[in-house]
């Protein structure tokens, strides 16, 4: 139960965020499922990996893949799925505790928490960059090979 409840909460929050972003009615559920997926990956891999920066990286890769695939399937912008699914992964707690340590005068703790938060944000960015660059590359390679085949076919017909 400990593993399932955060996913459900993430789903609810993502659904509400999808409404705030005015996402089309028929894609609300799909985009909210992305938020749930990110949390699910986080919780599942938590059993194996203890470094949470890597956990965030894995979750981001999962949701970016989900967003890219769904965007191709439903022929809509990737942002619709990505922006909503990313929000439960944003380190809100890290930002808050960094600030709290600083105003309590615990500078060392504040700096270490702040750097940890920065690392997590970096992991989110790297995850998105890795997936969408790879997807773009694959798409371009596929387009090129398609036109090559078409050219071959044409030449074959002509001769």
């Amino acid at each position: 139960m400990n593993y399932i409840t955060p996913c459900l909460y993430a789903f609810g929050a993502s659904l509400a965020f999808a409404i705030v972003f005015n996402i089309p009615r028929n894609k609300l559920l799909l985009s909210a499922l992305g938020g749930m997926l990110g949390q699910l990956i986080y919780v599942v891999f938590q059993l194996v990996i203890s470094n949470d920066v890597i956990l965030y990286l894995l979750s981001t890769i999962a949701i970016s893949l989900y967003a890219e695939v769904l965007a191709r399937l439903t022929k809509s912008p990737t942002t619709i799925y990505l922006a909503v699914a990313l929000i439960p992964l944003v380190p809100g707690g890290g930002i808050y505790y960094t600030m709290l340590y600083f105003i309590n005068g615990e500078i060392d703790l504040g700096i270490s928490t702040g750097i940890h938060t920065l690392l997590i944000s970096g992991a989110l960015a790297v995850g998105i960059i890795m997936v969408s660059s790879t997807v773009n590359l694959v798409r371009k390679v596929m387009l090129k090979s398609k036109t090559k085949i078409r050219k071959k076919f044409k030449y074959g017909k002509n001769t």
Partner: peptide, 26 residues
């Protein structure tokens, strides 16, 4: 109260700005 504050400031998180900035840079 820490939990309440963290939970409610998540409504202000600029999710779309983060996503768009990363995607624009790529």
């Amino acid at each position: 109260m820490n939990t309440i504050i963290i939970g409610s400031i998540m409504t202000l998180v600029p999710g779309l700005a983060i996503t768009n900035s990363i995607r624009d840079i790529i």
